[in-house]
């Protein structure tokens, strides 16, 4: 087996069938863009719901008579509790400001005294966001001195959790289907390349080339197409993100191209799609020829 021969044949494949090669790269790129944009949209919807959900984790209200040390101890308890990701202390004055921000009215125009107690908003990381765990935490908070009440909107939390679960499943299934469709589509376009090189496969068979030697240049070419497709996709997804932000004035939670791991994943997916598509296409032809 001659590896340099395989590399040479694989990399020069595009010269021998230029048009099918370009069609394959563009097809791959469209598939990758669809997958990338779907993940981006899904991730942003997911992020939005998670943000909404985190607002409804837990809020702990201090007893107006709670001492500073009791307040401090309760806050410290929250900060060291496993799974607690954020604690935001809201003083009585801040609560007044928040009321005005939300309802547009100054509480002192309605009442003579400030009725709002100081409170702490507590958010959990994604691994601890389940009803049982948060309910246990809520119960433990209620035992602490200086705590008036603890709220946890269990029903809303459950509803949001269910929505997130459905989103994860539907989104995952959609991306998986898109991936399968991409492999089939890519493999069909790569067949054009193989058809254009049918004589090559036939001749290679006759002179005693192994399946590996015949298949490898096509797989290499598929990987090459995947890399080129991923580069085109980088530009396309970047354009879609910029377009969405410009047209809707929406600040996307996550932009795929900001993360190096997403770029690596994009190239890996491109290579896998190209190689799988080639493998599927070439396998059939290898068995068709002598």
């Amino acid at each position: 087996m001659n590896l340099s021969f395989i590399f040479k044949e694989g990399l020069s494949g595009f010269k021998r069938a230029k048009f099918p090669f370009i069609v394959s790269v563009v097809t791959l790129s469209i598939c990758l863009t669809l997958i990338g944009v779907s993940i981006m949209i899904g991730d942003n919807i997911f992020g939005y719901f998670r943000e909404v959900q985190s607002d409804f984790d837990v809020q702990m209200f201090y007893n107006p008579q709670a001492s500073n040390s009791e307040q401090h101890a309760a806050l410290e308890y929250c900060n060291t509790y496993p799974g607690v990701m954020t604690t935001v202390y809201i003083s009585r004055n801040e609560a007044v400001a928040l009321f005005q921000e939300e309802f547009g009215e100054n509480i002192f125009d309605i009442l003579k005294d400030n009725p709002f107690p100081a409170s702490v908003r507590i958010g959990f990381d994604r691994y601890h966001q389940n009803v049982g765990y948060i309910s246990g935490f809520k119960a433990s908070l209620e035992q602490l001195p200086g705590i008036e009440t603890v709220t946890f909107h269990k029903a809303l939390f459950l509803k949001l959790t269910a929505i997130l679960r459905v989103l994860t499943m539907v989104g995952g299934a959609f991306v998986l289907l898109l991936f399968i469709a991409s492999v089939l589509l890519t493999s069909n376009t790569i067949k054009l390349i193989i058809l254009a090189r049918f004589d090559w496969i036939e001749t290679m068979r006759l002179i005693g080339a192994s399946d590996f030697t015949i298949r490898s240049p096509f797989l290499l070419e598929g990987a090459f197409q995947g890399i080129l497709g991923a580069i085109l996709t980088l530009g396309a997804v970047h354009g879609v993100e910029a377009g969405i932000m410009k047209l809707t004035n929406l600040d996307l939670n996550s932009r795929l191209m900001q993360f190096p791991e997403v770029i690596i994943l994009l190239f890996t997916t491109g290579i896998i799609l190209g190689v799988l598509g080639s493998y599927r296409a070439v396998r059939r032809f290898i068995y068709m020829v002598v």
Binding site: M1, N2, F5, T203, M204, I207, G208, A209, T213
Partner: peptide, 9 residues
């Protein structure tokens, strides 16, 4: 040269 390349000469 093809058959010779295939067998790695």
């Amino acid at each position: 040269a093809l058959p010779l390349q295939v067998i790695g000469v």
